Simulated assay, not measured.
Amino acid sequence: MKFCMNSKSLHSVISGLLLVLTVWGCGSSDTKTNDNATNAPTQQAKEKSDAPAKKQTVLFYGNSLTAGYGVEPAQAFPALIGKKIDSLGLNYTVVNAGLSGETTAGGKSRIGWVLRQPVAVFVLELGGNDGLRGLPLADTRQNLQAIMDTVRLKSPQATIVLAGMQIPPNMGTSYAKEFRGLFKELADKNKAVLIPFLLENVGGIPKLNQPDGIHPTPAGHKIVANTVWQVLRPVLK
């Protein structure tokens, strides 16, 4: 069978065919673009979920006990706590802001500078030097409160852990008793987590302390770390 077509008809057919091909091609391109646009947020979300979460900070803020006076930095109890955290794969990093000789007044004066970055957990270990020097307990109480107030201001979501201390009755039994009680008093007032006595099973035991009878040996720090860990572990989410 023969199929005849004049030039005008042929031109119309070719024009129509080109139009169809053009429309189809545009539609195909749009579909691909839309698919890419749809997949892009999904891919970004996946990459974001795969990225490791930034570690939260556990800040130890104290005096020579925290600083690890007389022992290697890695032997001080904050470093030992850091090792426990790492071994469990918890998403925290430990910062040791201990300073030998620090009193509560000194801690109050530098707390704003130390808290330049937010913290998740703030472990407050100060007051021992106040007690050993017989400083007025009203001042010690006020300074510790001021430090905790600053933490609440700078890192409102932080959990505050307060390390309780005890001193020998050198300054009198009444002073020693009031000193011991002020830590629980402040912990209750501020809804802080209390370590009843930081040096439990270490304080007053010669073999676990350096010759000064105050600062723990490496073995003593291991016991202190365990005491702190029993209180701190439930706090770490």
Rank of each mutant, 00 (worst) to 15 (best):
L19M: 11
P234G: 08
L194Y: 00
R233N: 08
I223H: 00
R110S: 00
S87P: 04
P118S: 10
E72G: 06
P234Y: 09
M165I: 14
I111W: 04
G82N: 07
K2Y: 09
I111G: 00
F60P: 00
D35H: 11
L65F: 09
P211V: 11
C4L: 13
D130N: 14
N226Y: 06
T103Q: 07
T103E: 09
L186S: 03
Y61L: 03
P156C: 09
K84W: 03
Q230G: 07
V228R: 06
L18D: 08
A45V: 03
G89R: 09
K46Q: 11
M1R: 14
V202Q: 10
G164W: 05
D130P: 03
F122M: 01
T33V: 13
T66R: 13
L198C: 04
N190K: 03
A187E: 06
D149I: 00
T104D: 07
G131A: 02
K55H: 03
G128W: 03
A158M: 10
L236N: 08
G107Q: 06
K48D: 09
T31S: 14
V23I: 11
Q230T: 15
T31W: 14
K207I: 09
A192L: 07
Q230F: 04
T140D: 00
T104L: 06
L80F: 04
L153W: 10
P168T: 13
L10T: 12
D212M: 11
L132H: 03
I195V: 08
G25S: 14
A53R: 13
A138C: 00
G68V: 06
K108A: 09
I147D: 04
A53Q: 12
G16D: 13
A105E: 14
L90K: 12
